[in-house]
């Protein structure tokens, strides 16, 4: 990552314009050419510095559900269980964490009923109990990281 990459990551974690030529508009603010911005974004995605470039959806706002869940996975079964959990399209992300509850994932479904269905499938395939941590209240969310 050079200085321009850093400036791109810092400037474009939100507020990407909705207009005919959004890359041109964003590039002008950064003082680079449109083609350079597009090429650099492609490379940052390729190198996995960025996991995605586009809209971030909040499924609850369209009647869906988004629930944090955890499992206590025996170490010997960890890879098998990770593969079983990750195989569900409802699993939006999944992290290993250091705790007795050592697998933490988010289920995102278009309808609230989809959550119970996904949990049932995870419990049946893994043989483990799913701990659910639905959000009771959101105080703050703004995931922006300085590059």
């Amino acid at each position: 990552m050079d200085e321009i990459d850093r400036a791109i990551v810092n400037a474009l974690q939100g507020d990407f314009p909705i207009c005919d030529e959004p890359y041109r508009e964003a590039a002008e603010k950064l003082g680079i050419a449109e083609a350079e911005l597009i090429a650099r974004l492609g490379r940052l995605l390729e190198e996995k510095t960025l996991t995605r470039f586009g809209p971030m959806f909040q499924v609850e706002r369209m009647g869906g559900a988004f629930v944090l869940a955890a499992l206590a996975v025996p170490e010997a079964d960890y890879e098998r269980v990770a593969a079983q959990v990750n195989a569900l399209p409802e699993v939006a992300h999944n992290y290993r964490r250091e705790h007795a509850l050592n697998m933490w994932f988010v289920l995102a479904t278009e309808a609230p009923e989809g959550i119970q269905d996904a949990i049932g499938r995870i419990e049946r395939s893994t043989g483990l109990a799913v701990y659910l941590f639905p959000k009771l209240k959101e105080y703050f969310v703004e995931m922006k990281l300085a590059a």
Binding site: I8, V9, L12, Q13, G14, D15, F16, I18, L41, L44, E47, K48, T49, L50, T51, R52, F53, G54, P55, M56, F57, Q58, R61, M62, V141, L145, A146, A147
Partner: peptide, 21 residues
């Protein structure tokens, strides 16, 4: 624009990989 205003889209932009940064 409507989905953004309604909050269905939280924002549009880059999602960095924490580790890579």
């Amino acid at each position: 624009t409507r989905l953004l205003d309604a909050g269905v889209i939280r924002r549009i932009g880059a999602v960095p990989n924490h580790y890579a940064l």
